[in-house]
Simulated scan of single mutants.
Amino acid sequence: MGRIIIDPKIVRIKGWVVLVLMAISFYVGSISSGNQEKELLVPETPNYTVKQGDTLYKIAKTVSEKNDIGITEAIKSLKRVNEEKGNKIEAVIYPGQDIYVPISK
Rank of each mutant, 00 (worst) to 15 (best):
T72F: 11
V50I: 10
A60F: 01
K9S: 01
D68M: 10
L40P: 02
T72H: 03
K61R: 15
P43M: 08
V28P: 01
V50N: 00
G86E: 07
T55E: 07
T72M: 11
N87K: 04
I93S: 00
K105V: 14
I10M: 01
G53L: 11
G29D: 02
D7I: 15
E65I: 08
D54S: 12
A74L: 00
L21M: 15
G29L: 07
N82E: 03
K88T: 12
S33G: 09
V18T: 12
V81P: 05
S32L: 07
S25Q: 07
I99C: 11
F26Q: 06
V20T: 14
V92N: 09
E37F: 07
S32T: 06
K79E: 10
I24Q: 06
E44I: 05
K51A: 04
A74C: 05
K61L: 12
G53R: 13
K88R: 12
Y94L: 14
E39Q: 04
G86A: 03
Q52S: 13
P46W: 10
I89D: 14
Y27V: 11
P43D: 14
K58P: 05
I99T: 11
G53E: 08
I93T: 05
V101R: 01
E73K: 15
T45P: 00
K88P: 06
E65D: 11
K88L: 08
D68A: 10
V18R: 13
I24K: 01
E84K: 15
I10P: 01
L40R: 02
G53W: 11
R3T: 02
V17M: 03
N87S: 03
S104V: 09
K61S: 12
G34Q: 07
S77Q: 14
I103R: 13
N87T: 04
S64N: 06
I89A: 10
R80Y: 01
W16N: 14
S32P: 01
V92W: 09
S77W: 03
L56G: 02
V28M: 14
D54Q: 07
K9L: 05
V50M: 02
K9E: 12
I75D: 02
K61D: 14
K76Y: 09
V28S: 06
K76G: 13
F26P: 03
K76T: 13
Y48K: 03
V11F: 00
T72W: 00
L40Y: 03
K66H: 04
N82R: 04
I59E: 00
I99K: 01
I71S: 09
V18H: 05
Q52N: 15
K9F: 13
K38R: 15
T72V: 08
V92F: 11
A91R: 10
N87F: 05
